[in-house]
């Protein structure tokens, strides 16, 4: 019953957040300089044609009217059609204004549905790498405060947090792909193409996780119940993995929720550098081409993902520690 009311409450809150994000993005896109119709029709298109297309598409109506029309489509699962991309999904530009391919414009939902699994795969592998590395470095650090494992964890996270992802991406591609030839780096033709970008994202995620894990584990290890556990005769491994880590993982989980939400920023750059065909590359190209429907669609889907991740994280945290209430 608690879970049901929790879910209903949080989903309603989430819907409101998504609505506000959509309204904000929709308004901002229409007040920034740059006429998307000119991009669609081509720079050489005459003014009359620009106005004709704009009126046909309702782009000269008041913003609220446009927004109402857009939301009516969204609630029916229609995120509209891309302004510039054909159904083949190619990133397009250029100067033709005959608009012959208008009927072939790609559905925003299809473009996102094609790109999202790629980004989810990348994000999942990045989180797996980040967690594995954070545990490898953070757990010994947390178990030995103020000794060398703790200092090592500190230095490693300090170095990682100082590495810009665009630089690291290029360096890792040079090393593992160009020099050693171990991994492919550019584009996507199989799972192996996910590894290098995932490592870059993992290195971006890991420092905060390491510091958090080290700190919270060290703190938990000082708790009375750990001392009691020793008195009860439990082995060190059981104490650490069965009790201390379980308690230390609640703040880590909350942090992970925020980190995953923030992952999109890193994904934009990393996917662009590695030409990885996910949501990040789609977003960069959509922004560069002023593809309003696509930018809006990505914003809605991204905010929905953030909301769902945070609901999921809170739910799992309550399951780990039933004292928590959200």
């Amino acid at each position: 019953m608690f879970i049901l009311s929790f879910l209903v409450r949080r989903l309603l809150q989430g819907a409101l957040i998504i609505f506000l994000v959509t309204l904000l993005i929709f308004t901002l896109l229409r007040v920034v300089p740059g006429d998307p119709v000119r991009l669609m029709a081509g720079g050489m298109a005459p003014e009359a044609l620009i106005e004709q297309i704009a009126k046909q598409m309702g782009l000269r109506d008041p913003i609220l009217v446009q927004f109402g029309r857009y939301m009516a489509g969204v609630v029916q699962g229609d995120l509209g059609q891309s302004f510039v991309r054909p159904a083949s999904g190619a990133a397009t530009g250029g100067s033709g204004f005959s608009d012959a391919s208008r009927s072939d414009r790609a559905e925003v939902l299809t473009l996102i549905a094609d790109a999202l699994p790629m980004t989810l795969q990348l994000a999942a592998l990045a989180i797996a790498f980040a967690l594995a590395f954070s545990f490898l470095v953070g757990v010994p650090g947390g178990l030995a405060p103020n000794r060398w494992p703790d200092r090592l964890a500190f230095y490693v996270s300090s170095i990682f947090v100082s590495l810009p992802n665009f630089w690291l991406g290029i360096v890792l591609a040079l090393l593992f792909s160009v020099k050693l030839g171990w991994l492919p780096a550019i584009g996507y033709k199989g799972f192996a193409y996910t590894i290098l970008p995932a490592i870059v994202l993992a290195i971006e995620l890991a420092p905060v996780l390491i510091r958090n894990l080290t700190g919270s584990l060290a703190s938990v290890m000082q708790s009375p119940f750990i001392a009691v556990a020793r008195v009860r005769g439990l082995g060190r491994q059981r104490i650490v993995y069965g009790h201390a880590l379980r308690n230390a993982s609640v703040p880590l989980l909350n942090l992970l929720g925020i980190q995953i939400s923030g992952l999109l920023g890193g994904v934009l750059i990393v996917e662009f550098i590695f030409d990885y065909p996910g949501l990040g590359l789609l977003t960069v190209n959509a922004v560069m081409q002023r593809d309003f429907p696509l930018i809006q669609g990505i914003a809605i889907v991204s905010s929905a993902i953030f909301v769902l991740i945070n609901i999921g994280v809170d739910l799992i945290a309550t399951l780990i520690d039933p004292r928590l209430e959200y």
Partner: peptide
């Protein structure tokens, strides 16, 4: 998981363009 990048090369000529196409 790990396939040498060199193995990607085949008889296909891969051209990387700096500019996108028009879709028409």
């Amino acid at each position: 998981f790990i396939s040498p990048a060199a193995a990607q090369a085949g008889k296909t000529l891969v051209f990387l363009s700096a500019e996108n196409i028009t879709g028409n």
